[in-house]
């Protein structure tokens, strides 16, 4: 009864101020650029992507419940694995390739590390200074890979003569290369099985080469994805698409639009995660596409 007698002025003021702040947050979110929020998020969380952590927990739980390997442990992508063994092509060694997949040069100038976490592609996105102008992290991306680190079993750094003409799968900023990276969350070296090209949502994603759509779908880590099967057992994967414009079994031509760039799945910004496989082995797509 005593509480009722007191005029709740203090509570009203508190609530009013809080509602004003909430309104401000909504308006600010609407009118101010994403970079501002990203800046605050990074400085609060140290670059840790909590949605990615949640996805990782969900994936681990599924692996535990269903008794299947965790995607990080299983390099195999079942969708891709079913697509056939590699042809017995003649391989041409490329002496220029670092077997340990050193980080790309354009990722070393102060920029790291919004991340995509989860999925066997170990999708750790290197973001260069142009992409994240406000971030000045101190991670040493040029640190040597720890002694004893080995090339993953299903990675093939060999350069093959492709039996078909190849096209660039997307235009934009090359933000992440094929090879080992310092994981922005676990701070250890992990392998990135493709490369990333960032551009605006809705940008064209094109077929790497003539082929057939082997699969389309949605994955927790990949988001909307397309898998194309090309001649001689080559397979390409296009992940984090905003939308997919082809369907399974459809024939596609090199350079033809198959999807739109987006940020679905475990991703912190619109980009294409592109993988190239030859049978069960991941190839370095940078060797076949001019990324400059």
């Amino acid at each position: 009864m005593e509480e009722k007698k007191k005029p709740p002025v203090k509570a009203i003021i508190q609530l009013s101020v809080s509602l004003a702040i909430l309104g401000g947050a909504l308006l600010t979110r609407w009118f101010y650029p994403e970079e501002t929020r990203a800046f605050i998020r990074r400085y609060i969380s140290g670059g840790l992507d909590y949605t990615a952590v949640l996805s990782e927990m969900g994936e681990s739980l599924r692996a535990f419940v269903l008794g299947v390997p965790h995607p990080d442990e299983a390099v195999d992508n079942p969708d891709v694995d079913d697509l056939g063994a590699p042809p017995p092509d003649e391989a041409v060694d490329n002496p220029d390739i670092d077997d340990l997949g050193a980080p790309p040069e354009n990722s070393q100038d102060g920029g790291v590390t919004l991340s995509n976490l989860g999925g066997f592609d170990a999708p750790i996105t290197w973001v260069n200074a142009d992409f994240l102008p406000s971030f000045t992290g101190e991670e040493d991306n040029t640190a040597p890979i720890p002694f004893g680190t080995v090339k993953p079993d299903k990675v093939d750094f060999t350069f093959y003569q492709l039996p078909f003409a190849a096209a660039r799968p997307a235009n934009g900023t090359f933000t992440s290369g094929f090879g080992y990276r310092i994981h922005p969350i676990y701070k250890d070296w992990r392998f990135h099985y493709g490369f990333d090209i960032a551009n605006e949502t809705g940008s064209d994603i094109c077929a790497f080469a003539d082929g057939t759509v082997a699969a389309t779908g949605v994955s927790g880590s990949y988001g909307n994805y397309v898998i194309l099967e090309h001649a001689d057992g080559y397979v390409t994967l296009y992940a984090h698409c905003d939308s997919v414009s082809v369907s399974e079994g459809q024939k596609v031509s090199a350079g033809g639009v198959i999807a739109r760039m987006g940020s679905t799945g475990v991703s912190t910004g619109p980009h294409l995660h592109f993988e190239l496989r030859r049978g069960e082995f991941f190839l370095n797509p940078s060797l076949y596409i001019d990324i400059e």
């Binding site: 996805s55 927990m57 969900g58 994936e59 949605v218």
Partner: peptide
């Protein structure tokens, strides 16, 4: 939620 593969279901399961 973990039984179903998907971005949102994974995150809900984790949360």
């Amino acid at each position: 939620f973990s039984l179903r593969d998907g971005m949102i279901t994974e995150r809900v399961a984790g949360m």
